[in-house]
Design a protein around this nucleic acid. Structure first.
Lengths: 223, 223
DNA sequence: CCTACCGATCGGTAGG
DNA sequence: CCTACCGATCGGTAGG
């Protein structure tokens, strides 16, 4: 009896170690791939970063593509927990839209990913290389855009936005502002573009923008 | 006398051949790098694509970085002639802003670069790799953004846009819409997102958006 | 999870 | 503009 228990414990322990190692590999893979890209990520570099051998990495992933797929998955888990889920606790409609965007700017500023938004980079890099990895990135991207569209639709129903507001159009605008801010932030390493992004989003959602040099009233379009 | 003339002709001919080869290399380099990235671009692949040897490529470029710098330069010349310069023939202010954006959407649709906007990809890829290449990409990027800001300022002066319009904010919004459209276009290979982008830009610039299912009057914000 | 190895390709050079 | 080569690294495998 104790033999079986002992063996079960050992198996559980070993699996737990394996899972921890796998998680550590993926954590490093997500980090490195936001800097070097999903293609630029190499098993050799990854192993060196972790202080282990290439064979050790291959014990957890059958191929580079397998590693890339798991890396996209792991990045999605991080993005969901760091950006999407916190924003979903805000009130439905415009407050949630604002929370998505602010959460995005914040995750850049906190450098959740050292090379900027994982999915912005992955989308442009893998968009030209059709295959399972591109499909997984596209799936996440379209899910995020669809989520924004749904919340815009809710905001319209709640009369927080005008009835003719096109959800797809506003989703493109908001997503675009996030992408442009990410690009400038990565390029110039300057957080001031994130403040500009925050102001743009507030104005577009019809919210007051407080700046030192103007009163909220002046924000109204006088035409 | 004829010897010098002969030699000059030969030299000119040889230089012309060399220039033509160099231009052909850069044309292929721009094309390949929008698909594989500026780092993913390899001298071997480039030579194979051109049907020449690696040594032939190294006869024109001292190093990969030298090739990358020339590739960014060549992409800039293409982007200027295909997008920026045609737009500058439009009337100053809002018409020029519209022309920049329409020109950008058109250059995607015409597949001037097979892998989408060269600079969108290059900015995200090289943003995390500081050096001469990143600086050249950043220089072009900031020049484009500055150009948009200047034209917004002109539009405000011409009273085509409200006096409180923030040039930096509108530049971020327009640039963002272009980036979001590029990302979706590359990812899903679907030109319909370009039409969505065109509508978004027109609306943001206060221009009539004609759609089958609504009159321009309905586009006004009823709040 | 390791060492030791495979063929292919990388950026780059020598010499012509 | 070519061939022939360099050391380093790539993704991946074998065997333990």
């Amino acid at each position: 009896m104790w033999v079986m228990a002992e063996r079960a414990t050992r198996t559980r322990q070993r699996r737990a170690d394996g899972d921890r190692t796998r998680a550590a590999i993926l954590d490093a893979a997500v980090r490195l791939s936001t800097v070097d890209g999903l293609e630029g990520l190499s098993i050799g570099n990854l192993a060196k970063d972790l202080g282990m051998s290439k064979g050790g990495v291959y014990a957890h992933f059958d191929s580079k593509q397998d590693l890339q797929l798991a890396t996209v998955e792991a990045a999605g888990v991080i993005f969901r927990s760091e950006v999407i889920e916190p924003a979903l606790t805000a009130d439905p409609g415009v407050p949630q839209l604002l929370a998505f965007c602010d959460g995005f700017f914040d995750h850049l500023e906190r450098r959740v990913f050292p090379g900027g938004c994982f999915f912005a980079g992955a989308a442009l890099e893998m968009g030209t290389h059709r295959g399972p990895v591109q499909e997984k990135v596209a799936e996440f991207h379209s899910g995020f855009v669809q989520l924004i569209r749904d919340v815009v639709r809710t905001a319209v129903q709640l009369r927080q936005l005008p009835p003719d507001e096109d959800p797809a159009a506003l989703a493109l605008e908001l997503n675009g502002t996030l992408l442009a801010a990410d690009t400038s932030f990565v390029m110039y390493d300057d957080p001031s573009v994130l403040d500009l992004g925050r102001r743009v989003v507030r104005r577009r959602l019809g919210l007051a923008v407080t700046r030192r040099d103007e009163t909220p009233e002046e924000s109204e379009n006088p035409q």
